[in-house]
Amino acid sequence: KTRWTREEDEKLKKLVEQNGTDDWKVIANYLPNRTDVQCQHRWQKVL
């Protein structure tokens, strides 16, 4: 388990703006080493 970088956080924010929060698998495709569940959790709990 690796810490999220600032770059990953920024990328996640942009991806959510573009794609919404309905399909985390699509978002995870753009973030290597991150699963859809990790992306969703990061968005809901941290950002």
Results as ranks from 00 to 15, higher is better:
L31A: 01
P32G: 12
D36W: 11
D23H: 08
Q18A: 13
L15A: 15
V37P: 03
R3H: 15
D23I: 03
K1S: 05
E8L: 04
N19Y: 10
E8R: 00
A28I: 02
K11A: 04
E8A: 03
Q44W: 07
I27R: 01
R3L: 15
E7C: 06
K13N: 03
D36F: 09
K1D: 04
R42D: 02
V37S: 09
K25G: 12
E10A: 09
L15P: 00
K14I: 05
K1R: 04
C39N: 00
K1L: 00
K11P: 00
D9W: 01
W43S: 06
W43E: 03
V46L: 12
W43K: 02
T21S: 14
R34L: 03
R6A: 13
N29F: 10
T2D: 08
Q40A: 11
A28N: 03
P32N: 06
Q44N: 14
Q40S: 10
K1Y: 15
K45M: 09
K14L: 09
T5W: 01
N19E: 08
D36M: 09
R34C: 03
Y30A: 12
N29E: 11
V16T: 03
D9V: 04
V37I: 12
R42I: 02
Q44D: 13
K11F: 04
W4F: 06
C39P: 01
C39D: 02
E17D: 06
H41M: 13
I27D: 01
K1G: 08
T2K: 12
R6G: 08
V26E: 11
N19L: 15
T21Q: 12
W43C: 07
N19K: 08
D22T: 13
H41G: 10
V46F: 15
V16G: 00
R3P: 06
D36H: 11
I27G: 01
N19S: 08
Q44T: 12
V16E: 00
Q40E: 15
C39H: 00
T21K: 09
K11C: 06
D36S: 12
R42Q: 12
H41Y: 14
K1T: 15
L47F: 09
Q40I: 08
T5H: 02
L47C: 12
D23L: 04
K11S: 08
Q38S: 07
Y30W: 14
K11G: 05
N29L: 08
D22Y: 04
L31M: 10
V26L: 13
W4L: 00
W4A: 01
E17P: 05
V37M: 13
G20H: 07
L47I: 15
T2Q: 15
Q44F: 07
V37H: 15
L15I: 13
L47T: 07
W43V: 06
V26Q: 11
D36K: 05
D22G: 12
T2M: 15
C39F: 01
Q18W: 08
K45T: 12
N29D: 06
V26A: 12
T5E: 05
V26G: 11
K25Q: 14
V16A: 05
G20P: 06
R3N: 09
K25A: 08
W24A: 01
V26S: 14
Q18F: 05
D22P: 10
Q40P: 00
Q38H: 11
E10D: 14
R3E: 14
D36T: 09
N29W: 08
R6W: 07
E10T: 06
V16F: 00
Q18L: 07
W43I: 03
L15E: 05
P32M: 06
E17C: 03
K13C: 05
W43A: 14
D9E: 06
E7I: 09
A28D: 01
E17G: 13
D23F: 03
L15V: 13
I27K: 00
Y30S: 14
V46I: 10
T21C: 07
